[in-house]
Structures are given as C-alpha cells and as structure tokens.
Simulated scan of single mutants.
Amino acid sequence: MQINRLAVSEVSGDNQTGRFHGLIRELARHIPHIEHIVGGKGMSGWQARLINGLPHRRDSTQEWWRRQRSIFAYRAKSRYVEDKILAMNPRPDLCLQMLQHFCPFMTSRRLPYVIYLDYTMAQAAENFPGWTRGRNRLQLACHIHDEGVALRNALHLFSFTENTRRYIMRRFGVPGERITAVGVGGPHVNSEPRAHLDPLKLLYVGHEFERKGGRTLYEAFTRLRTKHPGLSLTVVGDDAEAPPEGVICLGKVSDPAQMNRLYREAGAFVLPSLCDPSPLVIVEAMHHGLPVVSTRVDGIPEMVLDGKTGLLVPPRDSAALADALDALIRRPEAERLAMSRAGRAHAQTHFNWQRTGEKTWEVLQRL
C-alpha cells in the first residue's frame, strides 16, 4: 500500500496517547505527511452532551459524570472525527486510530483504517468489571458491539501484546493474519547498570489502586514485615488507600527527576495488578535495573520473564506475593543483579519505539 498521507486519530483528553507518539515519530521516517486529529476537540455543546450523556441524579459525583456515556457515544464520536478527516485536503491515504475508544470509518469505510490498541472494552468487562463502572448494561453492550464492528472492519489491527491479539481472534472472530502484535515502546531511560540492590526497599507505581492490586500489596507487605522488620515500601499514585506501618505514600509524582531518584533508591519493583493490559511502569522499572514482582494477568507475562527478569504470582493472592518477595529478598545478591541485568536487556531490546515502528511499517507496506 502506498501511504503518503496518514491521519492519526487520538483520544480527547486522554494524556495516555501522548506516550505513544514514539510510534508516530518512527512512522514519520517513512510517511511524508502525518496529520493529528483529536476526537472531541472543537465539539459543540450539544454534541458533547449527546456523547457524554446526562446525569441521572443531581448528586452525581464528578467521577460518575466523567465515566457516564450514552449509548450513542462510540458511533457519535467516530462520525465526528470521520467528518474532520474527510474535510482534509488532500485526503489522507490511511487513518491510524490510536486506542479503541472510538473509530472513524468503522461503518462507512470511506477511508481504509488500522487500529493500534492495548485492550478492548470486552476484556475489561470480563477481567475487571470495575473498569466499566459508570456504564449500565445497555451502554456497555452497545460499546462492545460497536468495538466489534470497528475491529472486524479494520484493514489491519496492531496490538500491544499477543494476549490481546489472541483475545480479539477468539472474541470477535478476526482472522489471525489481520492482527499483528507489535509491542509498545517504553520511556527512554539513561541509567547505569546496578552494582547493588537493597531488596528491603520496595517501590510501587500505579494509578487506580484497586485495579493495580494495591490492597493485595498492603496485605502481603504486612505479612512480610514480621519476617523482615527493616522492609519499606514507597507508593507512588494519587489514589492510594491509607497505608499500614512502614509504607510511605507520596501521591502523584510528576517530576521525572524525582521518579528517577525513586527508581535508583529502590531494590525491587512490585505491581500485583488484578487487570493490566501492558503497564509501561514495568518497562520503566526494568530500564532502571529493578527486578519486578508482578502477576500473571493480561500482557504482563510477556513483559516479565518469570524467574529471569522477575517473579510472577497469581492475582489477589497476598500469601503468594509475600512468598515471592521473601524469596527475592533471600536470594544471593549475585542472583538479584543477574535478574537486574536481564531485565535491562529485555526492556532495551523488546520495548522500544524503533522496534515497534519497524514492525508496524513492515505490515503497512504489505497491505
């Protein structure tokens, strides 16, 4: 396929998409003209109300209002972005939809499109229903139906992980040859190999404390601290619950220099997620040479090589998590440092935008 002009459709108000601009930068090496369209930007008041829905009660919380969506949301936003793309002159050759919150051209097919996605709403509904909170059954069913239409009508799908690729094949019936797992790039980190790791200094970084397994972590930490009184845990995230003794909650940390310092001071990274498509904080931790203790859910086993770059346990199992952390603490430092080196090499080799961009471009050329 000859691609001279590419329209990139992104999510309005979702700063997560900014993390994926590394892919666009790599594609720009091959595609002369790339135009960004942000869904929702410039939308009129009545359009926004149609998509966001109206509150059912006056005392609705801000969080409920943010999550509330009408049954028209997916298609309404898709058509809005589609009109903006069709107004471009000259018209793009292809549309790249970033993530799966809406999808222009899903029904009209007036322009071929591909999707780069980490997860689907159907996966979220099955694996962690709390992630779909704010949608009633009809709204959720409409969204999942529409995302199925978008996935099946796409020219090609690019998933972060093999886990999501397999799910889309099974749940939505998309042929395997039309889905490619291209990975995701991690943050660029200039860090030196670790010469020492203090396994008693644990670090957790995550938003959505419940979904990221924060309660399981607190239970495991309390259990483990009876064996290792010097154990400490630093929690970074703006919604952490009240911590037990020995836990320091820093809230949200926006300063990159402070985050780098926290990674350097830690001896191990722990993220016992209940549901997590492909958490980039794991990649960041491995770049900093930290062994990772996490869970066997979603795409995490593709990021953490159990026994080589970290340890994996079942979700919601505080006893297993405590045992894994205890095993890491008791390992000889030479073994922990070997795990640190393996993690850095794995992150640098498999989680970089150049690799993801090359794999994506290779497929686009064959379409």
Rank of each mutant, 00 (worst) to 15 (best):
E219Q: 13
L367D: 10
R58Q: 14
L6K: 04
M259L: 15
L157P: 11
R58F: 15
T107S: 12
V247E: 02
S340V: 13
G186N: 03
N4E: 14
V205L: 12
L117K: 00
L140Y: 03
V189L: 11
Y80M: 11
H30R: 12
S12V: 10
G45M: 10
D326G: 11
A220S: 08
F172W: 01
T180N: 01
L200C: 12
G148N: 00
V189M: 02
T107F: 11
V247F: 05
S70E: 06
R225I: 07
T17Y: 08
L140S: 09
L337M: 07
E335T: 12
G289H: 01
R25E: 14
H188M: 12
E162Y: 04
R261A: 15
E192W: 00
F221W: 02
S9F: 01
D238H: 12
E265I: 02
R215Q: 14
N190Q: 14
K212D: 02
N136S: 12
T216F: 00
V313N: 04
H207A: 13
G307V: 02
F351I: 07
E126V: 12
R336E: 07
R194V: 10
G13D: 07
P279A: 00
S78I: 04
L117A: 10
A285E: 00
T356G: 08
T132I: 15
H287N: 07
L321N: 03
L200W: 05
F209V: 03
D317Q: 10
Y263I: 11
S70M: 11
L99H: 10
L86T: 06
R109G: 13
G13N: 05
V8Y: 09
I282Y: 01
R110D: 14
R344E: 08
D255L: 01
A319C: 06
V292S: 01
R110W: 00
R58L: 15
S278D: 05
S191I: 04
A327D: 13
A322S: 15
I248S: 14
N163E: 07
H346V: 09
Q123P: 06
G173M: 02
V292K: 01
A28T: 08
E147P: 14
I329A: 07
A327V: 05
G185F: 03
V313Y: 09
R366M: 11
V247P: 05
G13P: 11
V363G: 06
G343L: 00
G53N: 04
L157G: 06
D298F: 00
Y74I: 12
L325Y: 03
A327R: 13
L202H: 03
L138K: 10
G130K: 08
A73C: 05
L325S: 06
T120H: 03
T234K: 06
H143T: 15
N352F: 13
R49L: 15
V236Q: 02
E265M: 04
V292L: 00
K201A: 07
A240V: 09
V182S: 06
Q365P: 07
Q47R: 15
T226W: 01
L367P: 08
R29V: 07
T356C: 15
F221T: 12
N52I: 07
D83T: 12
F269Q: 06
E210R: 15
